[in-house]
Design a protein around this nucleic acid. Structure first.
Length: 196
DNA sequence: CCCTGATTCGC
DNA sequence: GCGAATCAGG
């Protein structure tokens, strides 16, 4: 695979959107994340943080917010039919089931300091929606099946059989998966805008 | 161990 | 220019 104009363009676009190198590589296909990173460097757009060595955090941030990409792109008068609008639409618009997420009491069995169950507080609706979505994919682990890298978010009533732990891969060091981290750690003050 | 980006260096 | 291997951090 070579870096055709189109591929480079897509690379720039995705990188600009804050996509991680591995994700970009996955979408491009035929390249590894290393290739993507290497290319990004060569293109001179290695922005995103001045820490240099600490770039891991910029990942995993999939902006749930809809992107108002309604540009006409007059820059390309070429006779390019451009039959493919936006291939990367991972959200098949699955109806956001506002599933009550049957989580009842937070009576945790062992002395595990489990998360403060977010009652009906002020939580990002988006975050909640994300949670109810991922909970469908949850591994449904039991307490004993939990490991250092499985999401320890409890779901359901411990007194019932309808109780399990998320079990999805945790993010980094954190006890929960991405989605659950989102609802577990509510930003004290809304997230600051990233400096681009 | 999972992940992230950064850098190096043979090709 | 390319990208695997390696490095450095979470």
């Amino acid at each position: 695979m070579s870096w055709s104009d189109e591929r480079v363009e897509l690379l720039k676009k995705l990188w600009g959107e804050g996509q991680s190198a591995s994700q970009i590589a996955k979408e491009l296909g035929g390249v590894t994340r290393n290739a993507v990173i290497g290319k990004v460097h060569r293109l001179g757009l290695s922005n995103r943080n001045g820490s240099g060595a600490t770039g891991a955090e910029s990942a995993t941030k999939a902006k749930p917010a809809a992107k108002p990409e309604a540009k006409a792109k007059p820059a390309k008068p070429a006779a390019k039919p451009a039959p493919k609008p936006a291939p990367e639409a991972k959200e098949p618009a699955s109806p956001v089931q506002a599933a009550p997420v049957s989580r009842a009491k937070q009576i945790i069995p062992a002395g595990q300091p489990l998360p403060p169950q977010p009652s009906a507080n002020e939580i990002d609706p988006a975050a909640l929606a994300k949670v109810s979505e991922i909970e469908k994919k949850a591994k449904r682990l039991t307490l004993m099946e939990l490991t250092e890298r499985t999401c320890k978010w409890p779901v359901g009533d411990p007194a019932t059989e309808d109780f399990w732990f998320c079990g999805l891969p945790v993010q980094a060091g954190k006890p929960y998966c991405e989605a659950h981290v989102g609802v577990a750690f509510q930003p004290m003050s809304s997230r600051r805008d990233r400096k681009r």
